[in-house]
């Protein structure tokens, strides 16, 4: 796929293809949700899962496990995955950078640092407060990384942004460790702010839903704006887009999505990267279709990573961020090897 050409020539996905891909994406999501609810330390057959989903409030043990643990957890994975997927696509479209991802660019680590500072210094509790802290952290970090990334001498801003993200993420992660490391109790409690995980986070679902849903709803109509911005600033301005305002709005929504995901489960990298590329590979660079599809892809990916992590661990579970790193890095390396990425 020649991304430069497709991005420049204002791609339009035909509705038939769009509907077909969206439908298959939704089916994949449904399958993954049923699998995510059914698979685990206690296997429950898909038929029982569907039955339990259809009749809420069953009294037997399986139904209890499903409604208190598996279903909230799977829904949380879907929400977080969708947020990260669309956040990744928005960041890639805004920076014209195929390696952009809220985790790789350090935005999630910045959000996590702000949350941990709030918890340790001001004794903040509750996911709602976490969200506002995460939002502030994500916004500051995103601005910082972007500011450094476009001023690098690395030949292309693609690489400059990634390197800036690595440096800022290292600083944020170290500062987070600094805040939590001296206290074993705090460390055990706050550990998921350094490695994102879904284990035991099912309870935050109803608190994070408003924020995540608001972010996803705000993101949906941005596809057309992103398409026009990708034509270049002059062309977009000629088409009646107020470029500065549009870019700022898209960036704000991307940061909001990333912040709600981080506030819910901690930093999870590579989901946005892979989801955005999968969406574009399947449906082309028309963001009106690619944006909703990137949400679906992100949700499927995060659920899959969670299922694999649940089944792969010996006595415990492998944190979902570890699984996404293992699944996403080969993809990252493959992208980094592509000829059009690195200026030789």
């Amino acid at each position: 796929m020649n991304s430069t050409m497709t991005e420049l020539s204002s791609p339009h996905t035909r509705p038939v293809r769009g509907v077909a891909v969206t439908l298959s994406g939704s089916m994949a999501l449904a399958i993954v949700i049923v699998a995510g609810v059914g698979l685990g330390a206690r296997d429950i057959s898909p038929l029982d899962v569907v039955r339990a989903l259809a009749h809420a409030g069953g009294a037997d043990y399986d139904a209890q496990v499903l409604w208190t643990e598996r279903i909230p957890r799977t829904l949380l994975a879907v929400l977080v995955g969708a947020s990260l997927g669309s956040s990744g696509l928005i960041m890639q479209a805004l920076t014209l950078n195929p390696l952009a991802d809220p985790g790789i660019l350090g935005v999630e680590q910045g959000a996590a640092l702000f949350v941990v500072s709030g918890v340790v210094m001001f004794h903040v509790t509750g996911v709602r407060a976490y969200f506002w802290l995460a939002l502030a952290g994500a916004a500051v970090t995103a601005a910082l990384v972007y500011g450094i990334g476009v001023r690098t001498q690395t030949g292309s801003t693609t690489i400059g942004l990634v390197l800036a993200g690595v440096a800022v993420a290292a600083i944020c992660a170290s500062a987070t460790t600094l805040l939590v490391a001296r206290d074993d109790a705090a460390n055990a409690h706050l550990r998921f702010w350094s490695v994102g995980q879904l284990t035991g986070r099912a309870g935050v679902l109803d608190e994070i839903v408003p924020f995540a849903a608001a972010g996803l709803l705000l993101a949906l109509p941005l596809g057309r704006t992103l398409n026009m911005l990708n034509l270049g600033e002059d062309a977009a301005a000629a088409l009646g887009v107020r470029v500065g305002r549009a870019r700022l709005m898209c960036a704000a929504v991307g940061v909001l999505l990333c912040a709600s995901a981080t506030a819910a489960v901690g930093p999870v990298a590579f989901v946005g990267l892979v989801a955005a590329h999968c969406a574009r590979l399947m449906i082309g660079a028309d963001h009106r279709w690619a944006l909703p599809l990137s949400m679906t892809c992100g949700a499927v990916l995060l659920c899959l990573a969670d299922i694999v992590g649940r089944l792969a661990g010996g006595q415990g579970e492998v944190q979902v961020a570890v699984m996404t790193a293992l699944l996403g890095t080969p993809f990252f390396v493959w992208l980094a090897r592509r000829g059009d990425l690195v200026r030789v």
Binding site: V195, G313, G316, Q319, A321, T329, V333, L341, V342, V344
Partner: peptide, 28 residues
């Protein structure tokens, strides 16, 4: 040929894998 920036990018990816693997080993 090896471009140094591609080398650095690939290395960053490899670091992420190794860190994830180390985390995984702690789990098991």
């Amino acid at each position: 040929g090896v471009d140094t920036y591609r080398l650095v990018l690939v290395g960053i990816g490899l670091s992420a894998v190794c860190t994830a693997y180390t985390n995984y080993l702690f789990t098991i």
